[in-house]
Design a protein around this nucleic acid. Sequence first.
DNA 1: ACGCCCCCTGTCCTTGTGGACAATGGCGAC
DNA 2: GTCGCCATTGTCCACAAGGACAGGGGGCGT
Lengths: 209, 209
Amino acid sequence: MSSPQPLLILTDDDLLAERWQGLGRSPVRARNLEGLDTWRAAGHRLVLIDLGNAKAGQPPLWTQPGWQRNAAGLAILATSSMPNDDEGLAALNAGASGYCHSHAPLETLLQALDVIASGELWVGRALLSRLLRLVDSRLPRSGLADWATPLTEREREVAHLAALGESNLAIAGALGITERTVKAHLKAVFEKLQVADRLQLALRVHGVR
Amino acid sequence: MSSPQPLLILTDDDLLAERWQGLGRSPVRARNLEGLDTWRAAGHRLVLIDLGNAKAGQPPLWTQPGWQRNAAGLAILATSSMPNDDEGLAALNAGASGYCHSHAPLETLLQALDVIASGELWVGRALLSRLLRLVDSRLPRSGLADWATPLTEREREVAHLAALGESNLAIAGALGITERTVKAHLKAVFEKLQVADRLQLALRVHGVR
DNA sequence: ACGCCCCCTGTCCTTGTGGACAATGGCGAC
DNA sequence: GTCGCCATTGTCCACAAGGACAGGGGGCGT
């Protein structure tokens, strides 16, 4: 349906290159980052890259010197023979527009290529749901954070400062009350949040685990 | 390329419904959640939903009683006339497979529908890059975290446990050493990381501020 | 062999922390 | 008016934490 853009494939794996011929579009093959430069110079954008087996090629592709310059302006679909969430995130952060399995069904690859060709990003279901879970667990809820809900206003203030590592005396000074009162508030906070000490409180407040 | 699946559209906006006729596929229109049930009963999966203007319909669609049951098993593309990152996250968490602008170009909508029809998730560039930024700011860096680099192996172990709120005695037990030794390691950790106590250490380790 | 670093442990000692027990004044609900 | 919740403060006390000295044993490079 979309105008099939010319495609550059970049891989060291001959078998994979052959498989990718099945994508149609008679892709051009490159073997190193310089190929990206000439590809862009020719006015093209679409690139399919095999990151290879993480174990084999030690340094990830995007840590190589020319990467930033070479990747700029291109729509790159990064693929891995052993997809891994962290690698995917790293690839996307490094400028790739998509990430999936090297041996994904050709239909899936075509769809991903279509998506990134139109300027969007493409992320697999697994990686995306991990992202969602990550942000979901530590996003500002509507209004108050969950840890703050059972606390009174004063207790919130004390808890917040304590969670930043302030000493009882410092908190007392900041709020213009006695250290004894700070202790009283903290005692209530510990009780309500079911934590043993200020460190556990800090972890809770900052959403660790 | 992909077999065009039958499409159900769900919106209160007549203009929008008319516009979506342009998607082809002669979509069926529904006006309430019950429509989803009959749609699934008919053996279909693909649904395009307009969440409407967030201000107008106060309760988000997915908080309505029947939503969970109605949405199960369907591939739903949620759209909003005023896209908003938080709404998008909520929609995806509520079971939608995609989220974009109600008046996005028809090509974009078709592409998104193709993607979710094939079982993947579809997220717009803006929302996705926000997700990436969120996780990027607090994800384990490649190999060692910055706080760990100046520490010896043993110091890392002790620091890690201390940052989780374990007591010196507990750490000693976990590592099979004396509490005194734990203190020695922690002292070195505090010195190297330039922090005053274990709470500041925890904040550093967990990347707060 | 000597210095350097790491890992381990010991005995003080000071201080911050957190719990126990107790009390006062304000303020809204019944 | 009384009850309950909140904020405030007091004293006493047990204990974990962290610093100050001090030391032994192992590995590693020059």
